[in-house]
Design a binder for these strands. Structure first.
Lengths: 366, 366
DNA sequence: TAGCTGCTTGAATCTTCGA
DNA sequence: ATCGAAGATTCAAGCAGCT
């Protein structure tokens, strides 16, 4: 429901980047004036020493002062204060998005709930090209979490169901979004050719989020504006924005960036169109899902070789262990081998190619 | 490292389902006795019906703010208590997995951090066949979140990196896991043909998690056992389990289920080992055994550097002496260098990595 | 032009052993 | 506990430069 009046619009500093601490600046804005907030607060990463890639190059870490907090207590105080200020400026039917990683997102989500925000969805941004875990000590940190919440349980939040369905090729939009990280030409550089901001978010993410949860003309506030992805996408999509940013160097970059953006840029729309490739199905999934059991015997298509399945999705044959491809290649004395078509399993007295099981999983994924 | 003693094993009720409240039962177990905890705590506590404030006055159900606030407080108290009891029984190098949705996972994650657990990853279980959002008012809730945390920051948690990489067909396992929900034949039914438990987890999820973060023989505790997916998969994979479940009807179903499970054979349970687990072989042994001769020349993998082997197993290059690692790092101007993969020697006219010789010695050690 | 190789880079709580 | 040394460890993209 649009309730914006002329006088209210006049007092709002629309399409500007405001300098200063976001809490103070938000408290100076009129209450109940904002339709949507997008907030990408500091993550409070707690990094110890340097990290090198296996090729010995050094990882350019987020070591900025603005990401340093001395304790959870201090981070929680900070979170409480800015979320409270944010809630004051939200319209009664307003909503908020916050983004974070496991370092901070649980603090964010709990505090949202404590303040009476009503969580609508948590959304997973699955990165198609995340940075690997170079030391092999944990899982690849391949996602970040967004929380979408309305001001309270009763709020009539904006949700453009059909628009998102259209973006998703006619299928209901899910809570996991596969999008690449921001790099290439979209990644803003400073005068030295270094990245202008360590954590610039991709425009595709904001595009989907603004298309789905705002209407044209809505006022979108970003209290941690950085280099202004929110403002740039809002402008493209015909939404009004208000940015707040403490650091001058980021404001300068953002101003320039947004000035060069044109509304309804068709290229920006193209960014969000995701192409669908045939999903890769690791052989291990057949084992995890119980389609093949550890210890089960596979026989080669030509009937000459046998191997046993192991719990981690590798095979073991007479004198070799490895993937279905490696073991097949070794047994045939070939440089390579497509294990999917080489190996068969026994089902109802017949030998069936394991590729049948892969097809089955792919069908489920549709 | 297994440190289980006979007396400890004797006092642990292995491979049993214990009846009762999980906090009381955990407090009756010996401390520091559990390798891994998997917990799927309830979150629909149905508090709205009979909610009391801490001072025992009944909450006015009309007052939404009070209702929410007290709900969270009670849930947080519950979470704090069971996580504390869980932490007591964990071995110093133990770890925990918890699973939840946006309703409760932020409370879980924040409390884990508050108690000193150290989050290793948050993992998204991306459901390949979720229930659609029928009313079209929100995104399809297509995932649940798991948190993997060690007992504390210093803990040497178990992580079978190579096994998970193998499960994912040679690519590092990511933090987003695509797996189907539990249905079909795997879904347990009660005598009326109704599902026996509302939130039965798929065995594939537990398979991946147990293969990745436990070793055969480890003790896995599930304080919210339900119909025993954890126990069933633990048994298959040769892990010990302890289940705790309050409701008799679930215990009955779980007992029957686990009794019908068979453990995979030993060979199938072996997983791809990490190189770190292999015995250490000093470079000097290659010289002592005559696999390399003092004075023999080594050439770097990239062909740009040379060094000579000395009798004590150090190398000497143009302006540097030291270990294979030190000399390699110095010549490359790198912070570190794995000399085993950096240096090659000449054999039959070809350059061969010295790591081949290490493998040879390791093979002899078997 | 299209295709290939090689280099660079990304919100990262990223080692372990023995003296 | 602290310190030094051994040694284990990466995936997907974009882009430049070349054929």
């Amino acid at each position: 429901m649009k309730t914006k009046t002329r006088s209210e619009a006049a007092t709002l500093p629309l399409n500007q980047i405001l300098a200063g601490d976001c809490i103070e600046v938000m408290n100076a804005l009129p209450e109940e004036s904002i339709d949507l907030i997008f907030a990408d607060p500091p993550y409070n990463l707690q990094l110890r020493g340097d990290l090198h890639r296996p090729d010995n190059s050094k990882v350019d870490a987020v070591d900025d002062a603005w990401d340093q907090f001395d304790s959870f207590r201090i981070y929680d105080d900070f979170t409480r204060d800015w979320l409270k200020a944010a809630r004051r400026v939200l319209k009664p039917n307003g909503a908020i998005w916050v983004i974070g990683s496991y370092h901070n997102v649980f603090r964010l989500g709990a505090e949202l709930q404590n303040q009476g925000y009503w969580i609508l969805n948590d959304v997973v941004w699955r990165k198609s090209n995340p940075m690997p875990n170079f030391r092999g000590k944990r899982l690849t940190n391949a996602h970040e979490t967004l929380i979408w919440a309305s001001k309270n349980e009763a709020a009539k939040y904006t949700f453009n169901y059909e628009a998102l369905k259209a973006l998703n090729e006619g299928i209901q939009m899910r809570s996991d979004w596969v999008l690449p990280i921001c790099n290439g030409g979209e990644r803003l550089k400073d005068e030295n050719g270094e990245k202008a901001h360590p954590t610039q978010k991709p425009e595709a993410l904001l595009h989907r989020l603004l298309v789905g949860t705002t209407n044209p003309g809505d006022v979108v506030l970003d209290p941690f504006f950085g280099t202004g992805t929110t403002g740039a996408v809002a402008k493209m999509l015909g939404r009004e924005f208000i940015g707040i940013e403490r650091e001058e160097k980021y404001r300068v970059v953002a101003e320039k960036r947004i000035a060069s953006v044109r509304k309804y840029d068709r290229e920006a729309l193209a960014v969000s169109a995701s192409k669908r490739a045939e999903p890769r199905v690791p052989f291990g999934q057949l084992v995890e899902r119980g389609l093949l059991r550890p210890g089960e015997e596979l026989v080669s298509m030509n009937g000459r070789s046998k191997a046993k399945v192991r719990a981690d999705g590798t095979l073991i044959a007479k004198d070799v262990k490895g993937s279905i491809h490696q073991v097949g290649a070794h047994l045939e004395g070939a440089p390579s081998c497509n294990g999917w078509t080489y190996w068969t399993f026994r089902r109802d007295g017949k030998q069936v190619p394991i590729d049948v099981l892969r097809q089955q999983i792919r069908a489920e994924m549709q």
